[in-house]
C-alpha cells in the first residue's frame, strides 16, 4: 500500500492507454511518454503496460506502507527516499516506512514511478489510465490527493531485483533542451502555403503555457493554407500537428480527442514522442522531415534495443537469485 501525503501538481495513474474504444469517442489517454513508462515497468519486472504514476512538474510525497521495488524514468524531478537521492532509469529497493519525495524540477517536465506489481486500480474499458475530463479510470478518475491510498499489485517476479544502491542503469533518451523533432508530412501538408511549409521546418517554435495532456500549443511563425478550406473531421493520432485558423500549431498528445477538423501539417514520429512530452512551457523545438518508411525503421530499431534490455534485465535477475 502507498499512502499519498501530497498529491503534487498532477499525479495520475497511467498505463499505455485505452485502445479499441476510440470509435465510440473514448479518448485513448495513457502515458505522455510511453517509452519512459515502459522502461520503468521493465526495470521492476512488470509487463510493459502495467499501471504506474505519471508525475508532472511538481512531484508528490509518497509513504510506503510495505517493502517495494520501484523505478523512476523520464524527466529528473530530483526524487529522494528519506532525503537520499534516488537514481533514474534503474530499479531501487524501498523499505516499509520510507517516504519518497521530489525536489525542484531539473530536466524535463514529467517522470514515471513504476512499482513492482503495478498500481492496482480497477480496469475501465481494458485500461487503468486516467482520463481527467471524463473522470474515467485511474484512481477514481482524478489526480492523486493527500490521503489517497493505492494498492500495489502482485509482483510478477517475487525475488528482489534491487538493492538500495544500484550502479547500473538503462539507457535514457537524450532529452535535450532544444530538440529537433522528426515528423512525417501530415494529410493536409500540401494545402499549406509554400511559405508556411518552409518556415515550419526552418524556424524554431516554443511551447505555450496553455499546454496540457490533451495538446501542446506552439508559438512561432503563423502557418496558413494557400487558400481557405473547410475540413471534414477525421481521425487524429498521438503526435498529429493541427493548425487552427489562428495559425498556431497544436501537437495532439495523450488525451487528444479521437477526431479533429483542423488541417494537419505534420505527424510527430513515434520514437520522438518522448522528446515532445518532456517539454515545458517556454522550451523551444524544431521540426525535421522524415519519410514514413524511415519512421517505421527507427521504431523497429528502438524495439530491438528494448528487447535486448528486457533480456539483460532477466539475466541480471537470474544472476542475483
Amino acid at each position: 500500500m502507498l499512502t499519498i501525503r501530497k498529491g503534487g501538481m498532477q499525479t495520475t495513474v497511467q498505463d499505455l492507454g485505452r485502445f479499441g474504444f476510440q470509435k465510440y469517442g473514448v479518448v485513448a489517454s495513457g502515458a505522455m511518454d510511453p517509452y519512459a513508462l515502459r522502461l520503468a515497468n521493465l526495470l521492476v519486472g512488470n509487463e510493459d503496460n502495467a499501471a504506474a504514476l505519471e508525475i508532472t512538474l511538481m512531484g508528490p510525497e509518497i509513504f510506503f506502507e510495505e517493502d517495494a521495488v520501484i523505478s523512476i524514468c523520464g524527466g529528473d524531478l530530483r526524487p529522494e527516499l528519506d532525503g537520499r537521492a534516488v537514481g533514474l532509469w534503474r530499479p531501487a529497493a524501498v523499505t516499509k516506512g520510507q517516504t519518497l519525495t521530489f525536489g525542484k524540477l531539473h530536466i524535463g517536465s514529467r517522470c514515471y514511478l513504476a512499482v513492482a506489481g503495478g498500481i492496482d486500480v480497477p480496469k475501465v474499458m481494458n485500461s487503468r489510465s486516467t482520463y481527467l475530463r471524463a473522470a474515467l479510470g485511474g484512481y477514481q478518475g482524478r489526480a492523486l490527493e493527500a490521503g489517497d491510498q493505492l494498492t500495489i499489485g502482485k509482483a510478477v517476479v517475487t525475488q528482489k531485483l534491487a538493492t538500495q544502491e544500484e550502479s547500473w542503469f538503462a539507457p535514457s533518451p537524450s532529452y535535450s533542451s532544444e530538440p529537433v523533432i522528426r515528423v512525417t508530412p501530415g494529410r493536409q501538408y500540401n494545402l499549406f502555403s509554400d511559405d508556411s511549409r518552409k518556415r515550419f521546418f526552418s524556424e524554431p517554435f516554443s511551447l505555450n503555457s496553455q499546454s496540457d495532456r490533451m495538446g501542446y500549443r506552439l508559438n512561432g511563425p503563423r502557418l496558413s493554407l494557400s487558400e481557405k478550406q473547410e475540413m471534414i473531421s477525421e481521425a487524429v493520432a498521438f503526435g498529429s500537428i493541427q493548425v487552427p485558423a489562428d495559425g498556431n500549431p497544436i501537437i495532439l498528445m495523450a488525451d487528444r480527442q479521437t477526431v479533429g477538423g483542423y488541417p494537419k501539417i505534420a505527424e510527430v514520429i513515434t520514437v520522438d514522442l518522448p522528446l515532445i512530452s518532456k517539454l515545458k512551457p517556454g522550451d523551444r523545438l524544431r521540426f525535421k522531415e522524415v519519410s514514413v518508411d524511415e519512421a517505421q525503421r527507427l521504431l523497429r530499431l528502438q524495439e530491438k534495443k528494448i528487447n535486448c534490455l528486457k533480456r539483460a534485465i532477466q539475466l541480471k535477475r537470474e544472476v542475483m537469485t
Partner: peptide
C-alpha cells in the same frame, strides 16, 4: 489511402 503518422492509415 494515405498515412496518418507511422501507426495509422486513412
Amino acid at each position: 489511402f494515405s498515412p496518418l503518422g507511422d501507426q495509422a492509415i486513412i
